[in-house]
Design a protein around this nucleic acid. Structure first.
Lengths: 206, 206, 206, 206
DNA sequence: AATGAATGAGGTTTCATTCAT
DNA sequence: GATGAATGAAACCTCATTCAT
């Protein structure tokens, strides 16, 4: 039954991801999670201790999925900076597309003033490879004299993250307002291009 | 003990804005709102009917504050397009700075899949003047031949809104990650400049 | 304004009759009564003291309406017993037809184990003329040797009251079950006849 | 502390029958029911969903008790009509004697304009055996030429039901008024006899 | 490991009643 | 005499958590 216990634990986590990303910490229901996981409420307490502890696990889990996005650009000597930026943007867009729960969880945490994230050691322990890629690109570009001397890595990361993240985080209020279909392939392309131009503009002239 | 129904109603609304923007619909507590408004719980039900109805009023109220941001750029014949963009960006940044509750409420609504917003007639009835300003600017610029023919208003609005909004909506998770002080005057300036460059780039070349 | 105060008091009583006969003591709402009376809740407390006290007034008022049903049969020397019975039945049926609130209030009191009625002095003080008519008829009939010696007044009253009352008190559950239209003139007639036969049977043979 | 869901559910139902028949839907208290059932309020909601849903169950349950009154008269070839009527009356009196809650619940429903009963499928689905007994007796008597041609089943049922029901439903207001002890065996007998004479009179001459 | 019955604190809402004007 | 704002207790209901099996 060791496999069974592992499976139950995983089922609970999956159900929790769904429930917490949908409703947030306050709105989520232990009953719903148990029902969705196909198990008993007691199991949740046995494996995770409490609602909040389970929520922490979900955050951890989601954040770690970002850590797994690999961005190999630095070692490729033939790549130019414009392509690097494109690749980084693509990677991040793709990641967010593939992880709608991540987007929501981060939003809940923002509203929660990142209270839970701050409590988690692992989260702040590692740096996401995608951010490291930006950092090494900026360093290299500055060394090569291609990027301006006053360019600050954090502004690039900020632009990247918010530029891509916004696309997903305003999924409900904005399209409604502007009549945009955010799943339209053309719109995505335009958005990526605008972000690319913005970042490359900052890097070269900023 | 004052007996002033208008005042009480306003006190309740103010307390509700605070509570709902802090905790969201699910996390907010009627007791907290009553205590904060300095009145009895019954008053809330007498004046607003239910927790959800009060939440709707808060959303309506916040959204209407955006409608009051006036942007007079079109009538000024001497103004050039770059200045127009700056002014619009300034106005919106200023608005968001002055209305942190607005930012949060919009975020809650995004997570709520805009369920409540959709139910409110007024919200979708009017168009915010700041958005109309963008629209008329784009039209004029296209007519003047300064902006590209393929420029789409909605991309500009989208860039404006998300570019500025992100600055505030990621207030808790990002600075923590990037070590930025979002209240630093310099950072604000840089951010505005990046946004300005991005939008003007799209408008003239996009 | 003295007339006004009387009017208000009467309006409240009327509204209370409606509300209490519809919903009973527990289900009635002071707000509804005030709204229906077109006055303020405070007035109810000023004029009647409390919800229960108002309820008592309603009961009193309704019961007194029964006391006003006059049945002049005894003085009419030419009338035979069968006609007397008919007249008494008619009177009572007519009264109940005209006073649906009376029927309901009595029913509420029955469910309430007559707790409120018992507390009211006036109610038990007088005897309803219709009951006195039955009593004097029975006495006279027995003296005349027309009615059996063992005939008990109270059984006649009981038969009269329940026989007529049932017709109205089961207004909702029975027609639904039996497919009877209790407002149909023919049904009323049959019912009266059955009751008449039953009572006269008891009186002469019982 | 027993953990027995069936028992708990039954305890709740029993307590609910008591509370609802005593106080009606509006006057009944969930707390009282829980206390009387010896369980937690939450259990009531887990097993029955809401106060109203519990009330519906009570009505269903009571009504079904009537369905279980068996009246085997039709198959007995030696029985004459007068005895049949006696048996039916006895059965129904006995049932009402044994089920005071039934009487009260039906009364509440009458005051409630049978709103809840109407919503219950089962209730209107089956026909009570005692009513079927009356129907088959009337049919047979008419075929045999013993009962009048114009005799209507529904008047018999109506007379039976109201005649017996009244005896119990006016338990509190009438004895108080007439000085009758409704538990006195003699009174019951007289009442049954009056009802028997009334019904047989209608059937043979009506 | 797993179940589901049970708990109790706390949530939203209602309502008879009072009070300042 | 009349108003309507305000109160507080108590109503119905929910939900994270525990416990016996």
């Amino acid at each position: 039954m060791e496999r069974n216990s592992k499976l139950t634990k995983q089922n609970i986590l999956n159900a929790a991801i769904k429930e917490f990303s949908d409703k947030g910490l306050a709105g989520a229901r232990i009953d719903t999670i148990a029902a969705d996981a196909g198990c008993n409420k007691g199991m949740i307490y046995q494996y995770y201790g409490s609602k909040e502890a389970l929520y922490e696990c979900v955050i951890k889990y989601e954040y770690e999925s970002l850590l797994q996005v690999e961005v190999d650009i630095v070692n490729d000597k033939n790549m130019n900076y414009m392509d690097m930026i494109s690749i980084i943007i693509d990677k991040y867009f793709d990641f967010l597309f593939a992880h709608p729960d991540f987007v929501k969880i981060i939003m809940w945490e923002n509203l929660n003033e990142a209270r839970t994230m701050k409590n988690i050691a692992t989260v702040s322990g590692y740096k996401a490879p995608i951010i490291e890629a930006v950092e090494s690109m900026v360093r290299k570009g500055r060394d090569d004299g291609v990027f301006g001397e006053n360019v600050r890595t954090r502004h690039v990361v900020f632009a990247l993250i918010t530029g891509a993240f916004s696309y997903f985080s305003n999924r409900y209020t904005l399209p409604h307002l502007l009549g945009m279909d955010l799943d339209d392939e053309k719109i995505v392309k335009t958005q990526k291009k605008i972000l690319h131009d913005s970042i490359s503009g900052y890097l070269t002239k900023g």
